[in-house]
Design a protein around this nucleic acid. Structure first.
Lengths: 163, 163
DNA sequence: GCGTTTCTGTTATGAGATAACATCACGGAC
DNA sequence: GTCCGTGATGTTATCTCATAACAGAAACGC
């Protein structure tokens, strides 16, 4: 995504049967939560899963129509909000982009931390101890922490080697 | 800042002699780094210090002129970039706002984590173990981490009690 | 079927940030 | 002192990101 280097990048999105399966599973989870996986929601999730890395909202808007027609911004933003609410997508605040949630098994909203390669865009979602540490630090300072944004930028192994 | 509650809030910015002293110290540090503390840079830093909590860029733009005249956006964004470069201000990505750096003693750029009260806006900068933990998790995944964004939202002790 | 709720389509606009270029001030070389 | 290079500022314009507001359509419960 960010062109801070000149070597080639592999891409890691889903396609074909794997994409279909992920979408079906997502739909099942949404339905079991008593909500609907409507066409725009499915479409936005599909675009995020196909990409496999953070995507800008206006890229989603541009790619929304299968026929090349762009969507109107609220269509995509509403879908993103829905997907975030169900823990299927996350906003990466530091780059104003959105990414499909890796751990689609887990239901509902969940904390997440991200490792983002500034070169190829590969993004790893980790649920390590980061949240615990920051929540503990917050508690020590008297804060009741409700939500954390943890984003680490750098180079992934492949890009470091290629550089 | 965010009006998610209805009780009163204390504010914690600098003023008078303490503000003057902070600005003088900042200028000394800039000069010793071989750069200049020009009027717009000083003005933006002053606004951030006076506020004591995260401020939106366009609020800085609106308050820039002592006479009530707004600045042009690049004036303020350039000053913010300069202050960030010198570790005197930080961008809070999750709310698109900027805050003066608490640890003005430390020179140069430094990692930081923030505890942000969604009610009164009070923001604590902590340099706890958060960065280390996330950097270690990144290293374990093969990433060379260059920069982290760590922002925890919740309620500070005062707002929790007042709620 | 009928009302309620939820979602979508659409228009418009608000908020955040930067590109590009002309001009101005500072500091060093001579 | 003056010339020149560098870096900062002023200014215009534009680009990107995100949401408010409201009308219409689809799904659901009864």
């Amino acid at each position: 995504m960010n062109a801070v280097c000149d070597h080639d990048h592999l891409h890691s999105g889903l396609d074909g049967a794997r994409l279909d399966r992920a979408l079906s599973e997502a739909e099942a989870r949404v339905v079991s939560a008593g909500e609907r996986m409507t066409p725009p929601r499915r479409r936005v999730l599909s675009l995020l899963l196909e990409s496999g890395e953070p995507v800008k909202a206006y890229d989603l808007i541009a790619r929304f129509g299968e026929d090349g027609q762009a969507a109107k911004p609220p269509t995509v933003y509403r879908a993103l909000e829905f997907l975030e609410r169900h823990g299927m997508a996350h906003r990466i605040a530091s780059i104003s982009a959105y990414v499909a949630c890796a751990g689609q098994e887990v239901g509902g909203s969940h904390a997440a931390a991200f490792l983002i390669c500034d070169c190829c865009g590969v993004t790893r979602e980790i649920d390590g101890p980061g949240q615990d540490v920051i929540a503990a630090a917050g508690a020590a300072a008297g804060y009741a922490i409700a939500r954390t944004t943890i984003e680490a930028h750098g180079l992934c192994a492949a890009c470091r080697d290629a550089a």
